[in-house]
């Protein structure tokens, strides 16, 4: 598995497909923190939404970095499609982890906040970024070539799914009228609600742990559906 991960990493680096999403994210971070001071949780919340979309872009390029014909050969060598896809998910999650750490530490390093961030702010900031990255990876993977054959549908599918996930936040009151529906929809709104609690909060309510856990659980369930689909195909 480590051999495949190393191969995918080097192959992805050599395709240069990471350049557009990575550049855009870095430019966003620099521009977002140009003017100081900034609120801590609100800024983190905004950058986590941007990372949510950027990770959709990263996921598609990582899953499609290998030539389609080469993918057949690689699968013949690894002899296990599940392991192959698992490595791609690991690669995406590692990318999300690195970008989450960067998003949290960059404003601290340049002293872009009005208040000095406490460990609680840093933890919430990291969880917000990483949980939304994980969710974006899971949702975007559903539109990769293993499941969606048409490349155009891949990009439209990912973009519309991520936008709808975000739009649910504003439509929550309407959605709540249909019992149980909210549990089926991507829980981006949970992260945004938690990050809206204000910088003055000195402790993290127990509910927040459950809400972050649900975002991860939801993502794992979607990844499970991905594996189910690929097994059928």
């Amino acid at each position: 598995m480590s051999g495949l991960l190393r191969y995918q990493f080097i192959n992805y680096l050599r395709t240069y497909r990471y350049v557009p999403p990575f550049s855009i994210f870095i430019i966003f971070l620099v521009v977002n923190y140009t003017f100081t001071p900034n609120p801590i949780l609100d800024s983190y919340s905004f950058s986590s939404i941007v990372l949510f979309f950027i990770m959709g872009w990263f996921t598609i390029t990582i899953f499609h970095s290998e030539d389609e014909d080469q993918k057949i050969i690689t699968l013949l060598h690894i002899k296990n499609r599940k392991e192959y896809n698992l490595v791609l998910f690991m690669f995406c999650v590692l990318t999300g982890l690195c970008l989450s750490c960067l998003s949290v530490t960059y404003p601290i390093l340049i002293d872009a906040f009005g208040l000095k961030p406490k460990p609680l702010h840093i933890m919430m900031g990291f969880l917000s970024h990483f949980s939304l990255s994980f969710l974006a990876i899971a949702l975007s993977a559903i539109f990769t070539r293993d499941i969606v054959k048409n490349k155009q549908n891949t990009w439209w599918g990912v973009l519309s799914t991520l936008i709808i996930s975000l739009a649910i936040t504003t439509l929550k009151s309407v959605i709540l009228q249909i019992k149980g529906l909210i549990w089926l929809l991507p829980p981006v709104y949970l992260s945004l609600e938690m990050m809206d609690s204000g910088d003055e909060n000195l402790s993290m309510p127990g509910l927040f742990y459950w809400q972050f856990t649900w975002i991860f659980m939801y993502s794992i369930l979607v990844i499970g559906i991905f594996f189910l689909f690929t097994k059928r195909k």
Binding site: G3, L4, R6, Y7, I10, N11, R14, T15, D67, E68, D69, Q70, I73, T74, H77, I78
Partner: peptide, 21 residues
């Protein structure tokens, strides 16, 4: 069908495929 783009030298490519095996 031969893959149109392989970003490795034959030595690197065979090494990676061998490691994956």
């Amino acid at each position: 069908v031969t893959p149109s783009t392989i970003m490795f030298t034959p030595e690197e490519y065979l090494f990676h495929m061998g490691c994956i095996r």
